[in-house]
Simulated assay, not measured.
Amino acid sequence: MKNLLRLIALTVCLCFAFQTEAVAQDYKSAAGLRLGYPWAASYKTFLSESNAVEVYVGFRGFTFYNTISINGAYLVHKDIPSVDGLKWYFGGGAGVQFWSYSGVSEGSTLFTASGYLGLEYTFADTPISITADWVPTFVFGDSFGGIGSTGFGGRSGGIGVRYILNSGAARK
């Protein structure tokens, strides 16, 4: 796990180091990975120049329990004028988590309401977008033995790496 995170950090640093032009390409949609909580496959599409929808499906495996989550968010992007290709974003979303436990026939279902605050950088000459965000989350629903408990959590978020599916396409 630590080696994977080091490899991702090194790749991102090398991309920044060898970046020669500071003009971001616009894009309509991108797909990739969110690394953090949860680890997830992600798809993001812009509805307008600044408004986007992101959906992601995640999985977390632990020793005695696993969770699968499905999340969606509406995000508003704002330029950071001093750095081409860099935007900050905010938004809100909802999700559902399905928990299963070792040795127990029943699981639990939790629902989430989340806020989003993050940064996105789109490379000028490479169809790659990277993100870092914080996702404070309210969790509610049935819990099992304190695992998957309800309440507020401020530890969610992470980094994302996406491949731009329509490189060079202007947003509508």
Results as ranks from 00 to 15, higher is better:
Lys2Glu: 13
Arg6Ser: 11
Leu7Met: 12
Leu7His: 03
Leu7Glu: 06
Ile8Gln: 04
Leu10Trp: 05
Thr11Ile: 13
Leu14Ser: 13
Leu14Arg: 07
Phe16Gly: 00
Phe16His: 04
Gln19Thr: 14
Thr20Pro: 00
Gly32Phe: 00
Gly32Thr: 00
Leu33Lys: 04
Arg34Leu: 12
Gly36Ser: 04
Trp39Thr: 14
Tyr43Leu: 14
Lys44Asn: 10
Phe46Arg: 00
Phe46Ser: 00
Leu47Pro: 04
Leu47Asp: 06
Ser50Ala: 14
Gly58Ile: 00
Phe59Lys: 08
Gly61Ala: 14
Phe62Met: 10
Thr63Leu: 10
Phe64Ala: 15
Phe64Tyr: 12
Thr67Met: 06
Asn71Asp: 14
Ala73His: 00
Asp79Leu: 02
Ile80Cys: 08
Ile80Glu: 01
Val83Ile: 15
Val83Phe: 15
Trp88Met: 11
Tyr89Trp: 08
Gly91Glu: 11
Gly92Ala: 15
Val96Lys: 00
Trp99Glu: 06
Trp99Leu: 15
Gly103Ala: 09
Val104Cys: 01
Val104Ala: 08
Val104Glu: 05
Glu106Ser: 09
Glu106Lys: 10
Gly107Glu: 08
Gly107Arg: 02
Ser108Cys: 09
Leu110Asn: 05
Thr112Asp: 00
Thr112Gly: 04
Ala113Gln: 06
Tyr116Arg: 10
Leu117Gln: 12
Gly118Gln: 00
Leu119Asn: 03
Tyr121Leu: 07
Pro127Tyr: 14
Ala132Val: 13
Ala132Arg: 04
Trp134Asn: 11
Val135Lys: 04
Pro136His: 13
Thr137Asn: 04
Phe138Arg: 05
Phe138Cys: 03
Val139Gln: 05
Phe140Trp: 10
Asp142Gln: 15
Asp142Leu: 02
Ile147Val: 15
Ser149Leu: 03
Gly151Ala: 10
Ser156Cys: 01
Gly158Ser: 04
Arg162Ala: 10
Tyr163Lys: 02
Tyr163Asn: 06
Leu165Arg: 01
Ala170Val: 07
Arg171Glu: 05
Arg171Ser: 05
